[in-house]
Design a protein around this nucleic acid. Sequence first.
DNA 1: CGGAATGTTGATATGCCTCAACTAAAGTGG
DNA 2: CCACTTTAGTTGAGGCATATCAACATTCCG
Lengths: 245, 245
Amino acid sequence: MARVHDVMIHKLKEHTALSRKDEAALRSLPVKLRSAAPAEDLVRQGDQPDVSMVVLTGMVARYHTLPSGARQYLSFHIAGDWPDAQTLFVDKMDHSLSAINAATVGTIAHKSLLALFERVPSIGFAIWRETLIDAAIFRETITNNSKRNVPARLAHFLCEQYYRAQAAQLVKDGSCPLELSQEQIGEALGASLTTINRAMQALRRKGTMEFRLGRLYMRNWARLAEFGQFDPGYLHLRRSLRAPK
Amino acid sequence: MARVHDVMIHKLKEHTALSRKDEAALRSLPVKLRSAAPAEDLVRQGDQPDVSMVVLTGMVARYHTLPSGARQYLSFHIAGDWPDAQTLFVDKMDHSLSAINAATVGTIAHKSLLALFERVPSIGFAIWRETLIDAAIFRETITNNSKRNVPARLAHFLCEQYYRAQAAQLVKDGSCPLELSQEQIGEALGASLTTINRAMQALRRKGTMEFRLGRLYMRNWARLAEFGQFDPGYLHLRRSLRAPK
DNA sequence: CGGAATGTTGATATGCCTCAACTAAAGTGG
DNA sequence: CCACTTTAGTTGAGGCATATCAACATTCCG
């Protein structure tokens, strides 16, 4: 599938200027397709993978499992994201990776990537930047989950998901796919299902958004972003996206 | 100062095997010394630095500033850490960097580093790994601040600081420097000063640790680590350290 | 169509925040 | 080196956001 390369290149271009040579080099990477069923683990804590993945369709998530069995979602990944790029240089997984819904990913052997980095350093730098933006998102998540009350936290979270979906060209008519249950959102935001449910209703009543049938409908971006103190700077995109509506 | 190079190499070796050639290449890097007063900002949100830093002495912290003016500490850095390595590939700072106490850092021009990466890719990979471990620590912080109650959160935090201090050879007679106020610890853990103070007393009463005069005294590592569910795997050190006592 | 997963609502409990007063320690200038 | 000021730590009381428990409604799915 050439499409994996398209998606991969589109994503990298959101934050990095790629030369023709870079693009050609990326297209030369051998990629295998892998699909996963909803809730299927792609990689588990403790694993030592020898490939990295690029998400093609669907949503993939990273999570920690606590001794109690509870789950903490760390990040959600959509088309073009590299949810386990860190396995290139960090041998053992300190968290797990699972598909949220039916998802397809492209897998690329570490060997191929490392060889390419030596030959074309700028590709390595682009993917390095990818992992650094990942880290910036983690930092923002720390602040979001530590300092904001649940309604604002949820607003910020939804803004981020929507904004990133837009960059990945997944927004259509003011809505984007978001096939998470409210319980899962709670497991990402460090809040109980009940509290998420009430926060969701509060945001809906404000007329800022609607969330149903696995989609997020944006109703008033400015209001939602303000309420969640969302400023997309930390996503480090080259062109800032116009917020729709 | 040759000492900056020693500290830098010692830290990289904690997670990466360096060849003689790698070490020599690192020692060839031109480094300038910079010192900072307590609470002085080294880099501010929005800045676009053209150097990166390695901490030599003291403690340096990354933090977000919220619209209200409140501060969220994101990470704390000691000897050998690269607190702003991400500026190599992410132009604009999405957070700030300040000295906690009197600190000295070595600054290295991005230009020198990038040139070295092209010439000796393995150095780039080592520093890439450094930034990836940083990200792993951020992930752990998300889980810590989202899922654990304040006393356990504090225990986990103190274990991490102590463990990393030990790797940086800063532990002496069962104690390490930790020149943070309880208020600052609260700003890291998303808890109020009052609550931190009470949690601190609870941990002390358990006989697990003592915290005073800018130092953390470890009294019962096993108990503290168990209470905080601390498992150092996410720090990705090559040799795991024996927990003292 | 029936069962399971997900979402909704209400009631109660509690961990943590906020405010406030006070104590102890550290830093500073005379 | 001591009086003074500032900063950091401690303790108590009250209120609130969020967790927990429980029942029920709705949607999904085989």
